[in-house]
């Protein structure tokens, strides 16, 4: 199993690709909509790529939570059982 930092960096790469940024441009707390011009389509695609990558199912209702990288990590960790 990868370490939390490994997961965070993987998520950073996924987010960066969908938001058309370099991974280093995605700050842990950077708001996707306010700072990176994300929209609902891109948010759904981020969710979709995460689901595919980690073989988890995350309901679209969680999208409201997933406003920045740290929040995405927390949601995914909860559904993927990373913290256990």
């Amino acid at each position: 199993m990868s370490q939390p930092a490994g997961h965070l960096e993987e998520l950073r790469e996924i987010v960066a690709e969908v938001l058309e940024l370099e991974p280093e441009e995605v700050a842990d707390g950077g708001d996707f909509v306010e700072e990176y011009e994300a929209d609902s389509l891109r948010a759904i695609e981020i969710l979709a790529r995460i689901e595919k990558r980690y073989k988890v199912e995350i309901p679209q209702s969680e999208l409201n939570e997933m406003r920045n990288l740290k929040a995405v990590y927390d949601v995914v960790a909860r559904y993927a059982g990373w913290g256990e």
Binding site: V18, S40, L41, R42, I44, E45, A48, K52
Partner: peptide, 9 residues
């Protein structure tokens, strides 16, 4: 339905 929403337009 596992299509990319960003490509739908």
């Amino acid at each position: 339905y596992l299509v990319n929403p960003v490509l739908f337009p």
